[in-house]
Design a protein around this nucleic acid. Sequence first.
DNA 1: CTGTATCCTTAGGGATACTG
DNA 2: CAGTATCCCTAAGGATACAG
Lengths: 142, 142
Amino acid sequence: MTTPCNKRRSSCPISFSLDVLGDKWTLLVMRDLIFMRKRRFGDFLNSAEKIATNILTQRLRNLEHAEIVTRRTDPENARQVLYELTAKGLDLIPVLLDLIIWGARYDLETGAPQEFLTRAQTDRKGLIEELRNSILEQSSNE
Amino acid sequence: MTTPCNKRRSSCPISFSLDVLGDKWTLLVMRDLIFMRKRRFGDFLNSAEKIATNILTQRLRNLEHAEIVTRRTDPENARQVLYELTAKGLDLIPVLLDLIIWGARYDLETGAPQEFLTRAQTDRKGLIEELRNSILEQSSNE
DNA sequence: CTGTATCCTTAGGGATACTG
DNA sequence: CAGTATCCCTAAGGATACAG
């Protein structure tokens, strides 16, 4: 079942992005990677939205093939696997950030971290840099 | 079939956003509204990705219910219908902008408008303001 | 032009059992 | 822990044809 990546709908940057990210689960996994600092299969499974194991596997493979995450075994524990963001994956931080901002603004039920939001408005670049760096640090300090 | 909007998967701003936008077509319609300045049913149909009529109807209804677009008949032509962005819809410009930037950076096949991209980097806020204003102007000058 | 209505197919996804 | 393997089912989507 070696499907080549021929599922492109058109040649348009947005369409390109959506062909990779535009489904019900992928960006949720990205949220976990970026904001929840999750890196292991079981961590993703435990998220509130309850993704099924087969679907999660599928999405992680997709992200791997898209070179958005890498997969490696934990050097400290050979039975653990770590999924980590590549540079290409880190470059999605702005997208996720904007989704938070919009969601928090219009979702009246959910309380969102206010200090985070104002920070996102006043110092967007700095916030992105900070997120990026602390993720990089987390990955490299083993 | 009056399904209440009970399809929320969790209380999280990103999850909230994705429950509205996270499918194969919705953000493509948003792209057409924001960047292609499309406002009519037939315009959306003519996009490169070839959405089916029933799906398009469905998505436009969703966006209406989510109060992201409004629907009205063209005052200049009673047989035409205009779909237009609300304030809530205009607030999605940043998300779409970031999807363009990321897509353009990593999609090696598609040539993206370079001047637009550099502008997005150097004067993000100004660019968003400009887009927003010119869309508002387009809607109101009838 | 802006849709409805239908039919039909497939992909996406939930549940669960099982494996190295 | 990190998945595979199944089964099964529904929703999503394509392809028309047709209507106001």
